[in-house]
Computed example of a mutant assay.
Amino acid sequence: MAVVAPFPSLSTLDKPIDVSPVSFVELGPPRDAVELFKQLILQSHTPSLRLYCTVPTWCPTSENCLDLHDLHEMRTKFLVFIHDLVQALRSSGIATSYVLVPSSSSRCILSAGGSAAMVDILQKTTLPVDTRQAVLLADLGCPCLVFK
């Protein structure tokens, strides 16, 4: 299992959004987030990486899905995002694999070398409301992305 070093400096991205107990950095749309996350992983000098990804099934108290069509669209975008990220990391010389885990949460979460406990923290954390189309970056000992 790969261990990813802590963030070198978040000042190069955006100002962190503090939502206790986790701070987030907005990476922007998924296309930009792939490149920024790839650069973050490259700075950690890790030769291999396993991504832990949660895929929502359905949550009756969803904050961003009104019906099954919204849920399907979000999952589709997230899976495309994962594949783009894996391809970008592999083309940069990092052996990358991923695992998809069904979740009853309404959030798509990607953890680089993390565990289910880290994902559980992110699922229970209140997210900033004005970031519907953005990918959020959090540091819980390893980089984690929340795809809304």
Rank of each mutant, 00 (worst) to 15 (best):
L40P: 01
V4H: 02
V146N: 02
D130K: 03
C144D: 08
S23Y: 01
L27S: 06
T61P: 00
S105L: 05
S62Y: 06
S9R: 07
A112M: 09
V99Q: 13
T12S: 05
V22E: 12
V101H: 13
P47W: 00
E73V: 14
C142G: 11
P16E: 08
E63Y: 02
P8C: 00
D120W: 09
S97W: 05
I41D: 00
L13P: 15
V22N: 11
T126F: 07
S103A: 14
S111P: 01
H83R: 15
I17T: 08
V3R: 07
V25H: 03
Q123M: 14
L145S: 03
L85H: 01
P102I: 02
V119H: 03
E35P: 01
F24S: 09
D18W: 04
Q123R: 14
S97H: 01
C108H: 07
S20V: 10
L10M: 05
P16S: 00
Q133V: 09
D139Y: 09
Q123V: 08
D139F: 10
I94H: 02
T126K: 15
K38G: 00
L100H: 06
T125Y: 04
A88I: 04
D70G: 11
C65H: 15
P29N: 10
H72C: 06
S20C: 08
H69T: 10
L66R: 15
D130T: 09
L71N: 10
P102C: 00
Y98H: 14
F147S: 11
L13F: 15
V25M: 02
L140M: 04
G141E: 05
T125C: 15
Y98Q: 04
L122N: 13
F7D: 03
N64C: 14
L122G: 10
L66V: 14
V3W: 05
V135M: 08
S44W: 00
P56D: 07
D18H: 13
Q43D: 07
R31H: 14
L68W: 10
V129Y: 11
V4S: 04
S62H: 10
V19A: 13
G93H: 07
S106Q: 06
D14G: 12
S91P: 01
S23L: 00
P30H: 10
L40T: 11
L79Y: 10
L140R: 06
P60L: 06
F78W: 11
S20H: 12
M74A: 11
P128Q: 06
L137C: 06
V22W: 09
